[in-house]
Amino acid sequence: MKWTTIHPAVLNLGLQYAEWGIAGGNARCTAMLNTFARVIADYTTPPHQTLSRHLTSVVSRHVDFLNTTRALSTSMKAAVRFLKHEISVLSPDLPDEDAKAGLIAQMRSFVEAKIDFADKAIVKETLDKGKIRPGDVILTYGFSSVVNKLLLKAHARKIPFRVVVADARPKFEGQRLLASLVAAGIPCSYCLLTAVPSLTAPRPTKVILGASAVLANGSIMSRAGTASVALLARMARAPVIVCAENYKFTETLRLDAFVWNELGDSEELSAAAATMPVTSTGGHVSVLHNWRDIASLKLLNLHYDITPAEDVTLIISESGFIPPSSAYMVFKEIEQNVSLA
């Protein structure tokens, strides 16, 4: 296999990312590590090269490729840093097969520790400390894998509560969460973001959200629309809980959501969604079908936004309960424990 090309499994992964077949911080990270495991399994060091240095360049090339299909998430960047670090500390005396096997095992451990175990710890801590109570009406937004796990577990513990799933165009990720909760028998309501201020009967008692990243100043980067939900929650005096695994904590500081954001495909906005009639006449041809012919018209599809720290009551990671103002300190502590599992 020529290493100047991209491994087919990674090509396929890139396609899935581009089409949002795999989305969400944890899912994308897990898929990437699983795929890289295959790449490493298939890898052989070219003659006159050291595994450590060459494999690092191979990994970099594949990461760069994935970045062109869709910008890397914070979770993926953390995994890449981890992998490169593990490669860099490989003993030069270690036979290649052992080195590869070790890396593959490490990557599995990363997922087990940073995601699976972390999520279990988050769920346990949240429920053990009584942060979901009988009678709660929990508002959540979009799809978060850890929030899904939390709500399912709370239900399994026989706590009676209700969920309101808020959602938005163009991705409607909330419908995925809704399906999961309904299948488990949790009473649910569903609404779009535009309806959130109207939620009065029953009124949400708390908001639980997921995150793509926790920034240095305690603000949260998450799916576009999250910040609005948190703002409305603060105004309605409902506490906002953000569940985020440690590996999503970063030292980045972003003061606004505009300059760096990930721009999605404009076509998504214009595509007539099957779920609703788009034109006022009730037809199914989008009003925007020839938007490209209108010179002055642009379509903007932002994927993320930033929820400021003052709109967040509590961040929960596997390290426990964290006030947003302490996020950077927690990040520093996590950084100091680089090797895990």
Binding site: A224, A257, F258
Partner: peptide
């Protein structure tokens, strides 16, 4: 008129 269409979710970011 220089017009940009945006999603409801992007309001706070913008």
């Amino acid at each position: 008129i220089d017009t940009t269409l945006v999603t409801d979710a992007a309001v706070l970011a913008l």
